[in-house]
Nucleic acid binder design. Structure first.
Lengths: 405, 405
DNA sequence: TCACTTTAGTTCTGTTTATGACTTATGGTA
DNA sequence: TACCATAAGTCATAAACAGAACTAAAGTGA
């Protein structure tokens, strides 16, 4: 595991043994209210009171604070009904921003996200095996350019989230330069000290993508899901009741390592067959040398047949693990995201779903695969959510003595 | 799903949108403190303040309340150190009790548990396909007898927990009487109204067993685990960060339904091969007619060989799903409980672990199987914990507007 | 037109609960 | 025996929400 990832695995039962006090309770209520506004769109104070279970005066106080802080705005009155028309409240899209950075072996990308969930600025560099200095320079340059446009105030930035694969500096891939292992020894918090002084939060890419889907994607309607991230490798993330579950050693969702044992030939791991690099290898073996995912959309007849073969094979390999997920975890759905083009994801999802239906036997409930609302940008967007989560949104925040304190 | 099980699946994000108030916060702190005493054994107020993050006066107030309520007792002073000797506090084993009832197709059992986790009374009836009236009569008779001894005061009972298989009235098994389907239409809360008027809480048996293991078994040291319950059928339960995860439709842990597709022959489900009834069938086919699990401990050579064959086969079938659990969920361990005799569980655990080690390939971390601390009684004990959880122990209790309110 | 109704939202007071400073208690240590 | 360290209680204070009363503003209908 990367040294920066999940720095604090909670001690046994300790996590649930924290008391709370009035300040914490108030903070929690403010976070809950903000989240209710974020999720419920423009919403009146009376509705907020109903949803949160708080009383009208409490909501009045909390919304007053949120208005003063500029996190929400008044968004028109609700006319046409009896009684005093209610003032609707909505997230202030310029109220606060967060920076998300995704580092992967074949690209680095940066987004600026607002609290309403809109990507307000984006920058990507397609570069293989970028080293820390290059990434830091990229982040500094792009962020300066974004801030220079003036639409985003530096003071409104609440933090920097970084999403990167667990094994970035660990696994040595064939074409990987030797010094790439430096990532394993890099402290990301100091690496980005050249930026405006922001809190830096780190998460693995699949987890970040899952978090993004939970907060701003289909997860809003499906609080428990497995997120399947098909990028350079194959990763996954588990969101249960709206909460990301990291696993005992921070390795939940490592679906890519699942062993596949074919009837003949040696065993291999699932991501050797189902991943962007596996797909590129498959296509190359058929004589189609692709350089980027979008090349998959402009294939000739033969290329399309090769792609269809890969999809059928991938669906066959995925259906078993997906059945396991359905039975063991029973999430509402499995969302598929990553860097595959949308139509290819759709085909893979359909093929896997029908494979599962054919194989399911007595399985009582199948969690259907669906294309995720966030795909290519998902890890970066998810990374950007981390600071929001820590500062503004409800979580385990009612508890005292967090790792940071 | 049984109608009584998980009556309130939380609406999407709503679960996390509840505000809190002072009373709730205070209640939460009291629950947290009680749990800290329960888990931490005899413990001083100063240590409680350290663990919970509350201040000494707050702990003083809370412990005073707990002492008045009789839930904790003073347990000797801590001498031999500088300063005033601290008073150690411990759970009052006679402070409160809970009744747990396990209903299964081949037996019904009842336990009375105290808050310290001790089974204070126990009753079992080995009866096939007991009907509701019979179970109610059993519970009434046994509970009266227990209360008649006088060691347990009726006033100190906080509730009745019931654990039963999800599909008790649903699935129709070969030897099952037709009227057994009445379970599906039975309201358990009214069924047990003949008892002292206790809150009745219902949970499926695997979930209850997992909960029991989490609160009073190995789960205290391993907050995230999968519990594998081998009883008449095969079930499972998922505990993550000390919290039982029920699944989107309340069907997490349904490992028994996982399809097995052998190289030759038709597909079947895992519990057709790995379960007490499957084992009995296997032994019967070899000429060994067993009537109860303990018969497995007194087999002759041939019987032992037949048992070993079954264990090898079961280990081979379990290793795949167990690898999936390791990769996808990454729990600290998998605990195996149920009605198999301990030595048989040990053999099965060892066989499965070595099978997994052989097959794991690149899997970064394996969750080892271990024999659960609670086995045969686990569902009943877990059921008895439900009322404790609702009334006394911390959970999602900081939130307002629970399903009950 | 105008009083009435209805709903939104604020103000004020009261309650609960934890905190902080201070005090008391009690046994070890020099 | 004087001193010190630690435990734990007391009291006043602050923070936060609840409840009741009040004001505001729009629709309703005679």
């Amino acid at each position: 595991m990367h040294p920066d990832l999940s720095p604090s695995i909670p001690a046994a039962v300790g996590a649930s043994l924290s008391g709370t006090n009035l300040e914490r309770a108030g903070d929690h209520n403010q976070r809950v209210t903000l989240q209710a506004i974020r999720v419920g769109g423009p919403i009146t104070r009376a509705e907020l009171a109903e949803i949160t279970g708080l009383t009208a005066p409490a909501i009045a106080n909390i919304t007053k604070r949120l208005l003063v802080e500029g996190l929400i705005v008044e968004a028109g009155r609700l006319l046409g009904q009896r009684g005093q028309p209610a003032m609707k409240l909505a997230i202030n899209p310029n109220g606060c921003f967060s920076v998300g950075l995704n580092i992967d072996r074949d690209h680095i990308s940066l987004v600026v996200l607002d609290l309403a969930g809109q990507v307000r600025a984006r920058a990507t560099r397609e570069v293989d095996y970028a080293l820390p200095d290059e990434v830091a320079e990229f982040a500094r340059t792009e962020l300066s350019a974004i801030l220079a446009t003036g639409t985003i105030k530096a003071k409104r930035l609440v933090g920097l989230g970084v999403a990167l694969p667990d094994d970035l500096g660990k696994v040595h891939l064939p074409h990987q330069p030797d010094d790439y292992a430096i990532w394993d020894r890099t402290d990301l918090r100091t690496l980005f000290s050249g930026l405006p002084p922001l809190p830096v939060l780190v998460e693995n890419d699949a987890a970040a993508a899952a978090l993004g889907e939970a907060q701003f994607g289909l997860g809003l309607r499906h609080p428990s899901f497995f997120y399947l991230l098909i990028s350079q490798g194959l990763g996954g993330g588990l969101v249960l009741d709206g909460q990301y579950f990291r696993g005992a050693e921070g390795r939940s969702g490592e679906i890519g390592f699942l062993p596949v044992r074919p009837a003949t030939g040696p065993a291999y791991s699932l991501q050797d067959a189902v991943s962007l690099s596996a797909l590129f290898n498959h296509m190359a073996a058929r004589g189609y040398r692709l350089t980027q995912p979008d090349d998959l959309l402009s294939l000739d007849k033969g290329g399309q047949a090769a792609l269809a073969d890969w999809i059928a094979k991938a669906a066959g390999l995925l259906s078993g693990p997906m059945l396991s997920i359905s039975c063991l975890i029973n999430p509402q759905a499995v969302f598929v995201g990553g860097r595959l083009p949308g139509p290819v994801v759709d085909d893979l999802v359909a093929a896997t779903n029908s494979r599962m239906a054919a194989e399911c036997g007595q399985v009582p409930i199948l969690a259907p695969l669906r294309r995720a609302a966030m795909a290519a940008d998902a890890p970066a967007v998810g990374a950007a959510i981390l600071p929001f989560n820590q500062r503004l949104l409800p979580g385990r925040s009612v508890l005292m003595k967090t790792a940071e304190d």
